[in-house]
């Protein structure tokens, strides 16, 4: 019999889905508070991309200068935000921090939101991943990057005192 993620010792994944797309300031505030919690192993943010240049049409190549494409700080780590964040997926060691996450969302988000539990980050390499990274790829970053891009451009390891 299969067991669900919630009743085993395996990490569980949750998705925070606000009713509005979040500004960089909101994302920064929310993720900084989430970073302070124990037991969050991985985080994945998703949303529509903000291009630097007009990608197609008669004005192709014209600079966009989108004000929402900016740098945000998580603790000591600076990250370039290239998307307008629409949802945040977290991988947790256990369910103990769920209430705290809920409280942080209530404090930080300016709109209603949903929190769902499920499987949101891929667990195994796809064929494309394997072709790009080979058999020795780090399983921790599996599912956090696009196989066509460089890992450094899409995955950020947070700097902490212990240099985790």
């Amino acid at each position: 019999m299969e067991t669900s993620a919630s009743d085993t010792k395996k990490p569980i994944q949750i998705e925070i889905f606000p009713k509005r797309m979040m500004k960089p300031d909101t994302v920064e505030g929310l993720l900084n508070k989430l970073c302070s919690l124990e037991g969050i192993q991985r985080a994945f943010i998703q949303g529509p991309r903000l291009p630097t240049k007009v990608p197609f049409g008669p004005a192709v190549g014209t600079p966009v200068h989108h004000p929402l494409r900016t740098n945000v700080h998580f603790g000591k780590t600076e990250m370039g935000l290239e998307v307008l964040v629409g949802r945040i997926t977290l991988e947790l060691a256990g369910k103990e921090v769920m209430e705290e996450i809920n409280a942080i969302c209530v404090d930080t988000l300016p709109c209603d939101y949903d929190i769902r539990e499920g499987r949101f980050i891929q667990t195994r390499q796809t064929v494309s991943d394997f072709a790009k990274r080979g058999p020795g790829a780090d399983p921790v970053i599996c599912g956090l990057y696009d196989p066509k891009s460089k890992v450094e451009s899409q995955v950020n390891l947070l700097k902490t005192n212990e240099e985790e």
Partner: peptide, 19 residues
């Protein structure tokens, strides 16, 4: 060109997303 914001959630300020 680039119309895809119509089906996305609105931004925090209530404006339709436009890349």
């Amino acid at each position: 060109a680039s119309v895809h914001g119509h089906s996305l959630r609105l931004q925090e300020d209530g404006v339709m997303f436009d890349m």
